[in-house]
């Protein structure tokens, strides 16, 4: 009995590893906007170096991004973003480790746009939170484009907005993600 269990266990992992199908990119995009409606200038940044990998078999998905590679419209915003808010020397990376729950609904061999439910742990500014969001997966040949839009409360990640800039900097950031993965 014990042996059977163990064999089954080994076999399943073995097969998963053998037939694992990975999709990957290092040039995914994240755009965020944290501007209040009253702000005269837009507080938004973009990162074009998002690393992202997806296992289409298990639905496991991982994102990773270097905070210092966020670009801004103004040099000073870059400095403040890194120094005062994200503390990128202390917390150089943000990441997400999660799973596409409905991975079985997505057919990676058939072109089309599929809805995806994602759940997992997002770490920003050294704080990890469990999140669940929805997005789309557009399959086209050997590529899969992941898209998602969601918002993040800065307070949840211990990023404080001082009163002094509260009329410009929103307490909640909208995050848009677009990542074009290719089959490995």
């Amino acid at each position: 009995m014990k042996k059977i269990f163990l064999t089954v266990c080994f076999l399943t992992t073995g097969t998963t590893a053998m037939f694992a199908q990975k999709y990957m990119t290092r040039t995914g995009k994240i755009f965020f906007n944290a501007t209040t409606p009253s702000s005269p200038e837009k507080i938004e940044g973009v990162n074009n170096e998002v690393a992202n990998i997806l296992d289409t078999k298990t639905g496991d998905i991982v994102f990773q991004v270097l905070i210092k590679s966020f670009k801004f419209e103004k040099e000073l915003m870059t400095e403040h973003f890194n120094e005062n808010y994200m503390e990128s020397d202390k917390f150089p990376k943000s990441d997400f480790r999660g799973i596409i729950i409905n991975i079985n609904d997505i057919n990676f061999t058939k072109d089309g746009i599929y809805n995806a439910k994602v759940s997992g742990k997002m770490t920003i500014h050294g704080v990890t939170n469990q999140i669940s969001e929805t997005g789309t997966v557009s399959v086209k040949g050997n590529t899969a484009i992941l898209k998602a839009k969601f918002s993040v409360k800065l307070h949840d990640y211990k990023i404080e907005v001082p009163n002094l800039v509260a009329d410009k900097l929103s307490k909640e950031a909208t995050i848009v993600l677009e990542s074009e993965l290719t089959k490995k």
Partner: peptide, 30 residues
């Protein structure tokens, strides 16, 4: 199973880090 699932996201993260360009020599700012 739980350890496996956990190891899976870790190994994916490792794959991302493996092929990544070496961290640029990080200039100290401010």
């Amino acid at each position: 199973v739980f350890t496996l699932a956990h190891a899976q996201s870790d190994s994916l993260m490792d794959m991302l880090n493996e092929g990544a360009a070496p961290m640029k020599k990080d200039a100290v700012s401010a």
